[in-house]
């Protein structure tokens, strides 16, 4: 990764920020998997991808865009509080980047997967933590949500982050994977 703020970083942050907004205002941001809320959100994934691909600043800015758009768009009173809607989101891309960087030397694909997991968990935990501090929900309920919502969401996040980043970084080339319809039937 280049040092400093390059044109590429600025533009990447911009387009991924646009996707974060778009995922928030359409149904595409929700995957129908079993959680307490009935679906898992993937709106934080652009921030994770930005952090992994272009570093912590880009991750932070995308998180901020996601946070502000979820604040302006909120239909749940909890997220009409800027402290709950915006502040936690700033850290998604940053922790994802830190996870990626510390594991990159071991295995890049693992590092990307872990970054997807850590980014999603950061989102869940910080939102719940601030919601508890601000008195919107009880600590016991927060733990339940963390388990029932946070874990499926983290799994979804790992799958999507891997699918996108591995393809962009062209890490799966030379694996000689065959098509599903290949071989003797």
């Amino acid at each position: 990764m280049e040092k400093g703020l390059t044109t590429r970083k600025i533009v990447t942050a911009g387009v991924l920020g646009a996707i974060a907004i778009l995922l928030g205002v359409t149904r595409l941001g929700f995957i129908p998997v079993p959680t307490a809320a009935g679906n898992a959100t993937i709106m934080h994934v652009p921030a994770i991808i930005g952090g992994v691909m272009q570093g912590p600043f880009v991750g932070l800015v995308i998180g901020l865009i996601f946070g502000v758009s979820s604040f302006l768009d909120a239909t749940i009173p909890l997220f009409k509080d800027p402290l709950v809607a915006i502040v936690p989101r700033l850290f998604i891309g940053v922790t994802a980047y830190l996870a990626y960087r510390s594991l990159k030397g071991v295995n890049e694909i693992t590092a990307i997967g872990v970054a997807g997991f850590i980014g999603a968990i950061t989102n869940t935990l910080l939102v719940l933590l601030i919601a508890v501090i601000r008195g919107y929900i009880a600590p016991g309920v927060a733990v339940t949500i963390a388990l029932t919502n946070g874990i499926p969401e983290a799994i979804v996040s790992v799958i999507i982050t891997l699918a996108i980043v591995v393809a962009w970084k062209k890490l799966d080339h030379g694996t000689n994977k065959k098509s599903k319809i290949s071989g003797e039937l």
């Binding site: 129908p32 998997v33 799994i155 979804v156 699918a163 962009w168």
Partner: peptide
């Protein structure tokens, strides 16, 4: 309903091209 991986992969046909289009727009810009 419990097949999280399958249900996540169901959105691949939309989400992956969307990110790809975004990145190619980014390159142009």
């Amino acid at each position: 309903w419990w097949r999280i991986v399958q249900r996540t992969k169901d959105v691949f046909p939309i989400i992956i091209p969307l990110f790809n289009v975004a990145m190619s727009r980014a390159e142009d810009l």
